[in-house]
Design a protein around this nucleic acid. Structure first.
Lengths: 235, 235
DNA sequence: GATGATTTGTACGTATGTATA
DNA sequence: ATATACATACGTACAAATCAT
């Protein structure tokens, strides 16, 4: 039989075609990243190679590779011969990142207004609708997870893989510093209302309004975060 | 003599205070990155760890770390157990990156219009003026180098380190695919004229016009690149 | 489809540089 | 300031997966 037909993968676009079992370094990088993003590992914490290797039950080699990967994504900082620490950007750099993230998401919203498929529009609308129930129930944890999904739908709707990558990376790097922001009184309800403006504008095809609403949304998020008593010792 | 005065570095802001001798992995990463950006290593080229280690006269360990670093910056692509290759984004992804870069630079120009210091404004103006001579002389190599500097001044003038980082990284990733673009007839002269619009608008404090001019500038760059007979086998 | 050659992934030991006493 | 302790950078050896035959 013509064996070319059965295993042809030339139509694929990504670099990792079939489901390869992840390498140890990848597994460790993922776990460390999760801990950092969820603020279980606080900014400034030293990441000792030997200790991590012991705790993961592997040698130092994959731990080192994981740390290098995380350093390149900005979640950890490495100084030669001096080891790695969880990244701890100063307030100025955090503000810079916030501004850029707002602009990236505003751009994504602009593109969504003209580029989203009908199915994607329906998905965005229903995701927003589902979040209303979480607001009524006061379920902050569920809302936070749904919020990531919602913004992810906006990235996807822009149909620009690079933009989606940058926006998601930036959002991840900021996550440790926003972990508690939704706990603020009334913030969740206001967040949902702001989402409503954004979603409505996108579905209407009004990119400029969507972008403006998104900038306001992130500006409000940043302000809330700045006004709150810091749960995390970031300075 | 009071040696405290000579070696004080407490005013520094970055994470690598004193000039540490770079690690082998860093040296190798820099050299490979230069080769990729300058299109001496073409997209798709396999990067064999053992061969690279031999050619650099080191073991595989620092080579591996260098490759992981480059993978995180997007210059190379690594698949588990299958090695590294020089990144070769498909045309769609290239277009995505071009769009995002245009928006990042447009944002930078907008910020420049309001945030640049007087010294930075003078620097931008003089850099642009110097490039006029290169156009007259037809010195493409000098113009290309000066062009990177000019755009770098715009990044710096925005006073947003994260924006500067993203824009510079994106520009680097696109560099291999734009290497020959300035060779196109009249492209250099037109490029300089477009720069004039951008610089004038920034110095005038007109961010919106500067951003629009920058989008047009990069759009023209992309079009020229797309119309040219490919010097690089990118597809 | 099975087997062997080749390349990557991981473990571990040594050297070098940093930090502390 | 010198020396000692310690963590990281690098080299080497082995294990595991991929691909070529």
């Amino acid at each position: 039989m013509p064996r070319a037909a059965g295993r042809d993968t030339s139509h694929r676009v990504t670099a990792s075609p079939r489901p390869v079992r992840p390498t140890r370094a990848d597994t460790i990088a993922t776990r460390l990243a999760d801990d950092i993003v969820a603020a279980r590992l606080l900014p400034g914490t030293a990441l000792d190679e030997t200790a991590l290797a012991a705790s993961f039950g592997v040698s130092r080699t994959p731990v080192r590779e994981a740390l290098r990967n995380l350093a390149a994504t900005g979640l950890v900082a490495i100084a030669p011969h001096r080891g790695a620490v969880v990244a701890k950007p100063d307030p100025t750099h955090l503000a810079d990142m916030f501004l850029v993230m707002a602009e990236l998401e505003a751009l994504a919203a602009t593109r969504c207004a003209v580029a989203m498929t009908p199915a994607q529009r329906r998905g965005l609308e229903s995701q927003h609708a589902e979040m209303a129930a979480m607001v009524r129930a006061g379920d902050v944890a569920a809302y936070r997870a749904a919020n990531v999904t919602l913004h992810g739908l906006i990235y996807a709707g822009a149909h620009n893989a690079y933009l989606a990558e940058l926006a998601a990376t930036t959002r991840r790097r900021l996550a440790p510093f926003r972990a508690a922001q939704l706990e603020a009184p009334e913030r969740m309800r206001k967040s949902h209302a702001e989402h409503g403006e954004i979603v409505t504008a996108i579905l209407r095809g009004d990119g400029a309004t969507a972008a403006a609403a998104l900038r306001r949304h992130l500006s409000a998020t940043e302000q809330t975060w700045g006004e709150m008593t810091r749960v995390l010792p970031i300075s």
